[in-house]
């Protein structure tokens, strides 16, 4: 799974360049841990699980990988999982469930992107959350 994932990232020049700066073996391990936790983590879904996803989001923001790269990367995971399950003759239901877990994870990671960006701006400008949201709402209104 990890090989399929990094194989996919390697095919994109921009992402391959980011990967090249990191220890491939460690990356493979963190990915494998994450993948495993998708199956075990939901038994006690809670703050800790959310926290881990949130941290994954932060790590990617720090490295400078945009959220737009995470969506197709997750699609690769879903595709690869499906391919394996079909090959092994597993029921359709299992595929659907796994896809759902991946999407939930994706939404956590995407949420972390937004929050990290918000928090960073709030910290640098000293703005309260309410003020920040007001500016976004006003700005959005004027964009239409």
């Amino acid at each position: 799974m990890s090989d399929a994932f990094y194989g996919y990232l390697d095919r994109d020049a921009e992402m391959a360049a980011v990967i090249a700066k990191h220890n491939r073996q460690r990356l493979g391990q963190t990915f494998a841990d994450w993948f495993k936790e998708m199956f075990t983590g939901m038994d006690n879904w809670g703050p800790q699980y959310a926290e881990r996803r949130w941290k994954i989001g932060i790590v990617h923001v720090r490295v400078g990988i945009g959220p737009q790269h995470v969506v197709p990367a997750m699609a690769t995971v879903v595709q690869e999982v499906s391919r394996r399950l079909v090959k092994e003759g597993k029921p359709e239901q299992l595929r659907t469930s796994l896809s759902k877990v991946c999407m939930i994870d994706l939404s956590f990671i995407e949420q972390a992107y937004l929050e990290v960006a918000y928090n960073a701006v709030q910290q640098e400008t000293g703005m309260s959350e309410a003020l920040f949201k007001r500016l976004i709402a006003n700005g959005a209104n004027s964009l239409i």
Partner: peptide, 17 residues
């Protein structure tokens, strides 16, 4: 008024920071 108010608060906050 709405926009001016939000921008004013933002500016003061940034000024303080």
């Amino acid at each position: 008024e709405e926009r001016t108010s939000a921008m004013s608060a933002a500016m003061l906050s940034l000024g303080e920071r």
